[in-house]
């Protein structure tokens, strides 16, 4: 459980997977930050965020993901994203964040990238 209606948490061996259940505008982005910061505090270092149920993301949420990815890398971990709709990928590309955060087509390939 994540303590939020917008996200659920699963795990695949040592990788935590966050399933985002809502479009990520500024309101839901606050919950995303809380969930990811909780994982950071729990010393989790491998995180995949699954966007298969997301149709919209704004710059606040992108900034949150960039910030968390940087902090995870400081601990030799990383944050990887998967299953992004083309409109979401476009937002990452416009901002330039796709050069900072790794984006994968599927959850399987995102998890495999940690091996």
């Amino acid at each position: 459980m994540t303590g939020t209606e917008f996200m659920t948490l699963r795990e695949n061996e040592d990788v935590k997977i966050v399933d985002v259940k809502a479009d990520l505008s500024s309101y839901a982005a606050t919950d995303l930050r809380k969930v990811l910061e909780k994982l950071l505090n729990e010393k989790v270092d491998k995180v995949v965020v699954n966007f298969s149920e997301v149709n919209h993301i704004n710059s606040t949420a992108v900034g949150t993901l960039v910030g968390i990815a940087k902090r995870l890398r400081q601990n030799d971990g990383d944050l990887k994203l998967c299953n992004l709709a083309s409109t979401l990928t476009r937002t990452f590309n416009l901002i330039g964040a796709s050069s900072v955060v790794e984006i994968y087509e599927s959850e399987k390939s995102a998890i495999a990238a940690f091996q």
């Binding site: 704004n58 710059s59 606040t60 992108v62 900034g63 949150t64 960039v66 901002i95 964040a97 050069s99």
Partner: peptide, 10 residues
């Protein structure tokens, strides 16, 4: 691109 904010107006 590595910044966490300032992207909205852009």
């Amino acid at each position: 691109p590595t910044g966490e904010s300032g992207h909205g107006l852009y």
